[in-house]
């Protein structure tokens, strides 16, 4: 095999190389466009300026990122706990499910972000509101996916377990819950991206720290490079959370065979 064939072959099995090439080309095009059309820095900064802001502004960004991360995790973990809990309660009785599931679906249609100003009335400005918005956005996908997962267990498996003399608790622990895990993880991954959105929205409405606050301050100063850098930090936080979940999923349900490679389709908002 000659060299170019070898390289082509290597790329065929390492798709990420193509992605890296595309990203590098896009950054180069970005830089060239600014130079060619003489774009003002407050409209669009050069990639190098953004990078400089990311690095030299780290002293400001890192504490802000930590604060935002706390709100994201607070809202997300609350959503996981209460979401899975509510799903279990609703599924414990046909009547409860029938009474509340339509409500749940209806509640999904409320634009949660619009509730944020209302939340400041009850919770004040700052962490509690941020956590609450993150929670509200990430709660529903978790409830719904948990319910879908639990209801989706094959009835034959339950029959087999019942014929073994298994009680409801034993069946839940050994059969139902494990088979619902892939769906629960899918819900958590969607929720993780929504929790990031929620925390930022919470910060936008008046918080004094966090990356949302950094974004607004930079915006009022026409400091576009800092805004880009803040968005980059936010993206990285979202990615770390998402891939942490991927990792946990990978190790807790290695048997789940729809999982060939990483699933890169998080829900957006």
């Amino acid at each position: 095999m000659d060299l170019s064939a070898k390289i082509r072959n290597y790329i065929r099995f390492h798709n990420w190389i193509l992605t890296v090439i595309v990203v590098v080309l896009m950054i180069a095009a970005w830089h060239l466009a600014i130079v060619a059309f003489d774009v003002q820095p407050f409209v669009l900064p050069k990639p190098a300026d953004v990078l400089a802001s990311v690095i030299y502004g780290a002293g400001d960004f890192l504490p802000a990122a930590l604060s935002t991360t706390k709100s994201i995790l607070g809202g997300f973990l609350l959503a996981v706990g209460l979401g899975v809990g509510l799903a279990l309660v609703l599924l414990s009785s046909r009547t409860l499910e029938r009474a509340f599931f339509p409500l749940l679906v209806g509640a999904q249609l409320v634009p949660k972000v619009a509730l944020a100003p209302l939340l400041t009335v009850w919770l004040g400005i700052g962490r509690p509101t941020e956590i609450m918005v993150a929670f509200l956005l990430s709660f529903f996908p978790i409830v719904v996916n948990t319910m879908i997962g639990i209801k989706g267990v094959e009835l034959g498996k339950l029959d087999v377990a019942r014929s073994m003399g298994a009680g409801p608790m034993g069946i839940f622990i050994k059969v139902t819950l494990p088979s619902a895990l892939p769906s629960i993880f899918a819900g958590m991954k969607v929720a993780s991206t929504l929790a990031v959105v929620g925390a930022i929205v919470g910060e936008f409405i008046g918080a004094r720290d966090g990356l949302g606050n950094v974004l607004l301050t930079a915006n009022s100063n026409f400091d576009t490079a800092t805004m880009f850098a803040a968005i980059l930090y936010l993206t990285v936080i979202g990615m770390v959370l998402f891939f942490a979940l991927e990792l946990i999923e990978h190790f807790s349900i290695p048997w789940h065979h729809s999982k060939r490679g990483l699933n890169l389709t998080p829900g957006g908002a």
Partner: peptide
Amino acid sequence: IVFQEPFLLE
């Protein structure tokens, strides 16, 4: 009891 599908836990 054995069904048409094995219903093993994956």
